[in-house]
Design a protein around this nucleic acid. Structure first.
Lengths: 347, 347
DNA sequence: ATGAAAGCGCTAACAA
DNA sequence: TTGTTAGCGCTTTCAT
């Protein structure tokens, strides 16, 4: 590739225009409203800059101003409908504020979370949005040591604003729906809960809600009806297979705790005949448009990713990073219903 | 929030340790292997740095070295399984090279693509990966004017390396499969192709492949069997509804050209009774694990996102950015089959 | 209405 | 084996 000449700097523009670097700088970054610069000099400088293909070196600006124009977000995985919707909203919100989004996935590895947040801080991000962290305390410590604004989303963290789904409400509603749809003689029914990590904030509340609704409705429940086997599809696939094996059929009700777990569950379901699903009611906490149209009906709780992120940014805008918990209600999406979101005319 | 003291710099560490800033710098950034620095001074400096919570200011380093440690990627949308898998692979590949990924979605807006690439360049990204661009020429011009390495993925661009799916192969295979699965008396059958933009590189080749296989197999085809209505779900929903309306039923064969279009199609399908699908064979170019388990069987072409991105990074590693076209074959995923990818044990 | 100059935190010659 | 120094490109007082 032929070595092109370097990107022009304000000094190049200054030289060509005959103005000083500081004048050029203020014209080109908008701060010239304060400095009283003649409209025509400003205009001339802008034209020269355009003709030279000038664009500011954002690293230099960031260094000088001790801020970068970047906003960071970390999340567990990209390739999952909940988190990728989060990314989509994050991007839109960041752009509205003229910030450049930096989104990183950490595969629920606490070490990776820490490294990533440290990297973001080293780039002087204006804030970091922490989605579904496994070790919120550590991340909080790091951010506040560096005096970096941070907001927790989905899973709350200590001593900072947190925007979370109303898990109790959502899980109660989903559990109730599953039980309602089960055949009339629920006496012996043993609905199961699968996926997630029992100590996680979100999972623990969902389990609690599941348990209490089951107790209220069926009058009893045993511990083995909770299979908190993590989020990985592979693990969920093995667990559901083992469960079906033990029972000799599918459970009457199944509460799947995340899309990733659901993906795993599906990995087993593909091996089953159509009739296998007849006696079962299945619900999933989190929504996927394709998941809504499976071979069997699925009740889905759609976390309002857009509302979660918008609320987090609204908090960011206030500049107040004192602890508070903001709850967003998720929506129950009936089987075979397609939710139409903000981005339906894009793709 | 109590105002913490500023982040320590190499000067702070230098002062405490009694060494000079350059010594500190080289110790802390690894370049001390060349400078022969005593192991114990290095050790002492590292300890002091750790105790002070030092971490390098990457903007300053980037400014000085005229590179940032960032790699950029732009893609149409996040919340779609194909693109979010691309993100997942991009992230993994970037990390392996100690680069910080910056992923931005541009909603297929050419202006937004341009602005975004300019922003990335202003941050001095080491390369930009351009996925599914609508205006590759413009992006190429911008990148090469700024002398920034760039690689096209999914949709090829001019005068730069491009890694694309083997669309002809994939679309032929998918079309053939759809036709094969159709009822024996195919004489009058009119399979349809829906989604995408007819001038797009990928779509145009897929249409071409679709057309030629249909011609070979059925002996004829008319132009209205191609509905290149773009990628937006909303639009695809309206088009398929209109088509079904005109035909009074579903077409015998349907080739859906992207997941976003498929989502739209599904938006109409949810209104149809189960039997409506009996006489239809449906295929989708692109894979989604939930899409693989719908109420009706779907044949899916899985673009190998991991291979696409890995090949792109392999090219990046060579440092050679001269034009070349690298083809990656997609895989046909049979209905009701779950593909197990690289990240199946994460979630 | 504009310019000169200092300095953000870091790296890389060049000295010593 | 280590220190001194000159910038990277920009913003921002402070002068004029």
């Amino acid at each position: 590739m032929p070595r092109k000449k370097q990107k022009p700097t304000i000094y190049d523009i200054a030289e060509v225009s005959g103005a000083s670097p500081s004048t050029v700088s203020s014209v080109l970054n908008g701060s010239w409203k304060n400095r009283r610069i003649r409209a025509d000099t400003a205009q001339r400088i802008r034209e020269i800059a355009a003709s030279q293909g000038y664009s500011a070196n954002l690293q230099a600006r960031g260094l000088r101003k001790a801020k970068s124009g970047l906003v960071g977000m970390i999340l567990p995985v990209h390739d999952n409908r909940f988190f990728s919707s989060i990314s989509q909203s994050f991007e839109a919100n960041a752009r509205e504020r003229d910030l450049c989004p930096v989104i990183a996935s950490t595969l629920r590895d606490p070490q990776e979370e820490i490294r990533t947040v440290e990297t973001l801080i080293s780039y002087a991000v204006e804030a970091v949005f922490i989605v579904g962290a496994t070790d919120p305390e550590a991340l909080h410590r790091i951010c506040s040591a560096a005096n970096v604004a941070h907001i927790f989303v989905d899973l709350p963290g200590p001593d900072a604003p947190s925007v979370v789904s109303d898990n109790i409400h959502g899980a109660r509603l989903l559990t109730q729906t599953i039980l309602d749809e089960m055949p009339a003689d629920k006496g012996q029914a043993r609905p199961y809960f699968i996926g997630g990590v029992a100590d996680d904030y979100a999972t623990s509340r969902r389990i609690e809600a599941f348990r209490s609704v089951v107790m209220e409705t069926l009058g009893g429940m045993e511990d083995d009806q909770i299979i908190a086997c993590g989020y990985a599809p592979g693990r969920a696939a093995r667990e559901i297979a083992a469960l079906c094996d033990r029972m000799g059929r599918l459970p009457e009700g199944l509460f799947v705790n995340s899309l990733t777990a659901f993906e795993g569950v599906l990995g087993h379901f593909v091996t089953l005949p159509h009739e296998a699903f007849d006696g079962s009611v299945i619900g999933c906490y989190d929504y996927d448009p394709f998941g809504a149209f499976l071979r069997f009906p699925v009740h889905m709780m759609r976390q309002n990713s857009d509302a979660l992120i918008s609320a987090a940014f609204a908090q960011f805008d206030t500049g107040d990073f004192s602890p508070r918990l903001i709850m967003i209600k998720p929506d129950l999406i009936a089987p075979r219903t397609i939710y139409r979101g903000r981005f339906v005319e894009f793709g």
